[in-house]
Nucleic acid binder design. Sequence first.
DNA 1: ATGGTAGATACTCTA
Length: 256
Amino acid sequence: MKIATWNVNSISVRLDQVLEWISGNRPDVLCLQEIKCVDEKFPANRFREIGYESAVFGQPTYNGVAILSHMPISDIERGFPDDQEDAHRRLIAATINTVRVVNVYIPNGSEVGSDKYQFKLGWLDQLRKFFDQKCDVNQPLALCGDFNIAPEDRDVHDPQLWAGKILCSEAEREALEKIREWGLIDVFRKHHETGGQFSWWDYRAGGFRRNHGLRIDHLWTTKILAGKCSNSWIDKIPRTFEKPSDHAPVVAEFEI
DNA sequence: ATGGTAGATACTCTA
C-alpha cells in the first residue's frame, strides 16, 4: 500500500500536475493540502476518470484538504468535533484498506509571537486532543500532511539562520513532540538518517535552485503500521515543473 | 535589515 501527501497550493492551478503524478506513481492514497477551493469546485470528476474517489473538506480562498484513493473511502470525518461552522478547514480523516488516514494542514503561524502563532499552537493542542479522544494507538493509523514544522535541525538547510524562527521555534517543536508522544513514528526518518532532505522550498530568492529548503511535510504512523513500512521518500521531480507547488510529494510504502 | 514569489480575490491577505 502506497500513501502520499502533497501540499499543492491550489488544486485548480495544479490539477494537470496532480493527474500526471498520480498516473506515474499510482498511490493507493493521496492526501492533498491547500486545495484553496470550495467542495463544489473540487475537480472530483477528473480524478474519477482515472479511477480515484475523493473525500473533500474545502473552503473559499484558503486552506482546504482532500483525500483521494482508488480503494473504498469510509468513515469520513471533517474538522475537530467541537469546531464552529466558520473554523478553518484543515483536517480530514477517513479509513482506507483498514488504515485510519488523518490528513492535516497545520497552520503556518506567520511569525513567532503573532496572533497566528498562538493560533497554530492552539491548533496543535487540539490535534493532540483529537488523537486522545478519537483515535486508537493500537490500530494502523497514518497522520499525513503539511505540518509547517521542521522537527529537528537536520530538517533545515541553515539551522542557525532559522533558529527560533517560524517553522523551527522551540514551542512549535514541543507541541509537535506532544503529538508524536501519543504514539506516532516518522517513517521517512525510519529509512533516512541524513539531513539535507527537504519537502518545501520558498518560491522567493531561488529557494529550490539553492536547495534552501525545510522538511515540513510528513507521514507519521502508529507502531503497527510503521513496522510494515518498507520505504519512504520525497519526490522532488514535481518541484522542477513549470509553475510548481512550493512543496514536493512525500511517499511511504507499506507491506499491507 | 529587508525583500524576494505565488495564489485567490478584489484592490489585500496568506504563505
